[in-house]
């Protein structure tokens, strides 16, 4: 991967830290500044500002329609494929605005990966080809490099033992939970700095969900994760920080509160956050 030059910004330096805490806060790898997303002129997410600390799990929580997934997809420019979509504000990845033109979207996406709601391994590819697909997309051809990356990504995704002897089988032979771990391995193989997860367990049974949550916990010391979830128990189990979003009066999603997970669930400052985490609505 090519290192992007750090871009210093006076306005960013002037902003206060996102949360005050006794522990030393890790560096922020992603900084969202007044991020808005609209479709055909209609606002879906308004003015979201918060920081994502490095090598921590940040959960985006909130009821349906609060714009969590829309916001998540803005973080690796997946909205680029929708011509009616418009993203304003800035998203800084290690100081570089991903919408600023200095970082090509394909390079950005190999640094900010994504795991989707429904497990979506490539059906025409073998398990091995799926894991190394991202490297091949990025032009890696050397067999030894691919083999090494496949093994380490599958080990990291806790899938190596169950697939090492059937690497040439189609990905479709795996169970739903295994397919999702394969998708996580596929994302890890390109060694992203940030992994976005859009409700990664909503299509899985409780057993498979538990294993994915364990995996998220294990991975949190090597990659930064931003996870969208409807499931508040999940958010409280896997995340270090939570950002609570809610649909505003004009149906655009807004950030209500962001902070350490303990604080969001224990002593939220906003009444709406308190109502939501206590299950009074949503």
């Amino acid at each position: 991967m090519v290192d992007q030059p750090e871009v210093a910004s006076a306005t960013l330096d002037a902003l206060p830290p996102a949360a005050a805490s006794s522990e030393p806060e890790p560096e922020s790898i992603l900084m969202l500044r007044k991020v808005s997303v609209s479709f055909s002129g209609k606002l879906a997410v308004r003015d979201v500002t918060f920081d994502v600390p490095e090598k921590r799990v940040t959960a985006l929580i909130g009821p349906s329609g609060s714009g969590k997934t829309t916001l998540l997809r803005a973080l690796n420019r997946l909205h680029d494929t929708v011509s009616s979509a418009r993203v304003t504000g800035s998203v800084l990845l290690n100081g570089t605005d991903i919408y600023g033109g200095a970082l090509h979207p394909t390079l950005l996406r190999s640094r900010v990966g994504m795991v989707f709601q429904r497990p979506n391994p490539f059906p025409a590819m073998s398990i091995y080809d799926n894991v190394v697909s991202g490297l091949r997309f990025n032009g890696v051809r050397k067999k030894s490099l691919l083999d090494e990356a496949a093994e380490s990504a599958l080990i990291a995704a806790a899938l190596w033992e169950s697939v090492r002897n059937r690497m040439t089988a189609r990905a479709g032979v795996l169970s739903g939970g295994e397919q999702q771990r394969l998708c996580i391995a596929r994302s890890l193989a390109v060694e992203p700095e940030v992994l976005l997860m859009d409700e990664p367990t909503s299509a899985l049974d409780p057993q498979a969900t538990r294993r994915i949550e364990e995996l998220i916990d294990e991975l949190s010391d090597r990659v930064t994760m931003v996870i969208v979830t409807h499931n508040m128990q999940q958010a409280s189990r896997v995340s270090h920080r939570c950002a609570f979003m809610l649909m505003g009066d004009d149906r655009a999603g807004e950030l209500i509160e962001v902070g350490p997970t303990d604080q969001i669930f224990g002593s939220p400052t906003d009444q709406r956050t308190s109502d939501y985490v206590q299950g009074r609505f949503g």
Binding site: L78, R109, S110, G113, N120, F122, A124, G134, F137, R186
Partner: peptide
């Protein structure tokens, strides 16, 4: 559609999405 998005999210360019994902699938 999410296969194309998955490829996109791995840093694939349009041509390789067509060649490696859409056509084989």
């Amino acid at each position: 559609g999410d296969l194309g998005e998955a490829a996109l999210a791995l840093g694939a360019k349009r041509a390789s999405i067509a060649r490696r994902v859409l056509i084989p699938t």
